[in-house]
Simulated assay, not measured.
Amino acid sequence: LNVFQRQEVWNVCCVVTRYFGGVLLGAGGLTRAYTKGAADALTAAGIARMGLWTLWDVPCTYPLLERMKLEVAATGGVVRDAEYGADITLRTAFPAGAAETFQLRLTELSAGSLTMTAAGEEFLPGPREEAN
Results as ranks from 00 to 15, higher is better:
N2K: 09
N2P: 10
N2A: 15
V3C: 12
F4L: 15
Q5H: 15
R6V: 06
Q7W: 14
Q7M: 12
Q7F: 14
V9M: 10
V9A: 08
V9C: 04
V9E: 01
W10V: 10
V12L: 05
V12A: 03
V12N: 01
C14L: 14
C14T: 13
V15D: 11
R18G: 06
R18F: 01
Y19R: 09
Y19V: 05
G21L: 14
G22M: 09
G22R: 09
L24G: 05
L24H: 15
G26Y: 12
G28A: 12
G28H: 13
T31I: 02
R32C: 05
A38Y: 02
A39M: 07
D40H: 00
D40E: 07
A41P: 00
A41W: 07
A41F: 00
T43I: 13
A44V: 03
A48K: 03
A48W: 00
R49S: 01
R49Q: 02
G51W: 07
G51A: 14
G51R: 13
T54W: 09
L55S: 01
L55C: 07
W56N: 07
W56Q: 13
D57H: 12
D57P: 00
V58I: 09
P59M: 00
C60A: 12
C60E: 07
C60W: 08
E66N: 09
R67M: 10
M68C: 08
K69T: 05
K69P: 04
L70Q: 15
E71M: 13
E71I: 08
V72L: 08
V72S: 00
A73E: 10
T75R: 12
G76A: 10
G76L: 10
G77Y: 05
G77P: 09
R80W: 03
R80Y: 01
R80T: 03
R80E: 14
R80K: 11
D81N: 12
E83C: 08
E83I: 11
E83K: 14
T89A: 09
T89H: 08
T89D: 04
T89E: 04
R91L: 15
R91P: 01
A93G: 06
F94L: 01
A96Q: 13
G97D: 07
A98V: 05
E100Q: 12
F102D: 00
F102L: 00
Q103I: 04
Q103R: 09
R105W: 10
R105L: 15
R105K: 15
T107K: 12
T107I: 08
E108Q: 14
S110R: 06
S110D: 10
A111Q: 15
A111Y: 14
A111S: 14
T115D: 10
T115Q: 13
T115L: 11
T115Y: 11
T117D: 12
A118E: 08
A118L: 11
A119M: 02
A119W: 08
E121C: 01
E121H: 03
E121W: 02
F123D: 03
F123H: 05
P125E: 00
P125W: 03
P125H: 06
G126W: 04
G126T: 02
G126Y: 04
G126A: 04
P127L: 05
E129D: 02
E130N: 02
A131N: 11
